[in-house]
Amino acid sequence: MSIVITGASGRLGRLIIKELLHHVQPDQIVACVRQMDSAAALEEQGIAVRFCDYDDPASLKEAFAGASRLLFISSPHPDDTVRLRQHAHVVEAAKKANVSHILYTGFAFPEHSDMSMTHLHLATEHAIRTTGIPYTFLRSGLYMDFIEALDLQAAMSTGHLRVHPGSWQFNAVTRTDLAAAIAGVLSGEGHSNKTYELVAPSVWTFNDLVSSLSELTGTPISLCLTNEVQHWIFSFLRKIDTSSTSGDLENLLGRPPASLKASLQSYIGEVRSN
């Protein structure tokens, strides 16, 4: 079995490969990257590294050659028009390379969202379906990293977490849990033509956040609802589905995903060490 992974030098790609090495041998993995010098550590582990540029269709066909399973990590390009073209290149190259199975990392519950990014993911899934190649759609939930935009350091210093008013609920998950689940699917069986919503099985609120922060820091922190907070993250969060839940991630992991408190503990440790 040859597992080819695009975007292998990115944050999620590296975590997936780290988890995948618990399931398969290094010589079964092909890491596709745009900057070859970024993958030296992967080569040192015995993983084959191939050049792969979403804007260069010829490089894609060569990179995907012999793939039993292709993990297509969506493009990070900020322009969705460019991303759509890049995704079309990947899908077409997968067909030409006779890839046996395409696994695509989209966004959770895109049908419930209203922004160009989620429309792009739906369009890419449709394109993959039309190839006739067996597929698995790995729809990732909101990364827990988004809490960094809330300036928790200021909240811990002042005792107040300032957020926009609203009925906020979050199904966010850690990249580590996503990587573990995706690695299990990549190396396992029985996932053909399935769609997984990789979100938390239950939601948390900003009240839960300040409660956990207070407990972890030993300092009372209160929630301050105000329209004075100026940050793009709140506009983004209003346009996507952050409240729907699913048991898919927990089932694939075979355990509960990391809790809010556990995720915060790691984040607070990083803040204090800097």
Results as ranks from 00 to 15, higher is better:
Val33Arg: 02
Phe146Ser: 09
Gly132Val: 07
Ile16Asp: 02
Ile3Glu: 00
Arg69Cys: 08
Leu225Gln: 15
Met144Tyr: 12
Asp241Met: 08
Ser202Arg: 14
Ser246Pro: 06
Leu21Arg: 03
Glu189His: 12
His126Arg: 14
Asp177Arg: 03
His160Val: 08
Ala65Gln: 14
Ser211Phe: 10
Asp27His: 13
Gly254Arg: 01
Gly132Pro: 08
Ala149Tyr: 15
Ala181Thr: 02
Thr131Asn: 05
Gln28His: 14
Ser59Gln: 10
Met117Ile: 13
Ser59Cys: 06
Thr217Tyr: 03
Pro134Ser: 09
Gly159Asp: 12
Glu62Asn: 12
Pro256Asn: 12
Pro165Asn: 07
Leu260Ser: 01
Ser263Tyr: 06
Ser192Met: 10
Phe72Tyr: 10
Leu260Phe: 11
Thr205Leu: 04
Asp37Ala: 13
Ala127His: 08
Thr6Met: 07
Thr6Ile: 01
Met156Pro: 05
Leu71Tyr: 01
Thr195Arg: 11
Leu150Gln: 01
Asn227Gly: 13
Met115Ile: 06
Tyr143Trp: 13
Leu237Ile: 09
Tyr104Leu: 06
Asp80Thr: 15
Ile128Arg: 03
Gly132Asn: 08
His164Ala: 15
His119Trp: 15
Ile47Gly: 04
Arg14Asp: 02
Arg11Tyr: 10
His231Asn: 14
Tyr143Gly: 02
Gly106Leu: 06
Gln265Tyr: 10
Ala58His: 11
Ala40Trp: 04
Ile5Arg: 03
Ile147Cys: 02
Ala67Thr: 04
Leu161Ile: 14
Thr105Ala: 01
Leu84Ala: 11
Trp204Ala: 06
Lys261Ala: 09
His89Gln: 12
Glu92Met: 07
Phe72Ile: 02
Leu223Phe: 13
Val4Glu: 01
Thr219Leu: 14
Ser38Ile: 04
His160Ile: 00
Ser187Gly: 07
Phe146Asn: 11
Thr131Pro: 00
Lys18Asn: 13
Thr136Asp: 03
Ile182Thr: 04
Met156Gly: 05
Thr226Ile: 12
Cys224Gly: 00
Val210Ser: 13
Val185Thr: 02
Asn98Trp: 02
Arg255Met: 04
Ala39Gly: 11
Leu237Tyr: 08
Ser211Val: 09
Leu142Gly: 05
Arg11Asp: 14
Asn171Gly: 08
Asp248Ile: 09
Ser192Val: 08
Arg238Thr: 09
Val203Gly: 08
His89Cys: 10
Ile102Ala: 06
Pro165Ile: 07
Lys194Gln: 15
Ser244Glu: 12
Ala108Glu: 05
Ile102His: 02
Ser259Pro: 05
Asp151Gln: 15
Gly166His: 09
Gly159Met: 11
Ala181Pro: 00
Gln35Phe: 13
Ile16Gly: 01
His22Ser: 12
Gly218Pro: 00
Arg50Val: 05
Asp208Tyr: 06
Ser243Val: 13
Asp56Thr: 09
Pro201Ala: 08
Arg34Phe: 10
Leu223Gly: 09
Val229Arg: 15
Leu237Thr: 10
Val49Asn: 02
Ser38Leu: 10
Ile16Lys: 00
Arg255Thr: 04
Ala67His: 00
Val90Met: 08
Thr226Tyr: 12
Glu228Cys: 09
Gly7Leu: 03
Thr131His: 05
Ser211Leu: 12
Lys95His: 04
Ser116Met: 13
Ile268Glu: 02
Ile73His: 04
Met144Gln: 01
Gln45His: 09
Leu20Arg: 01
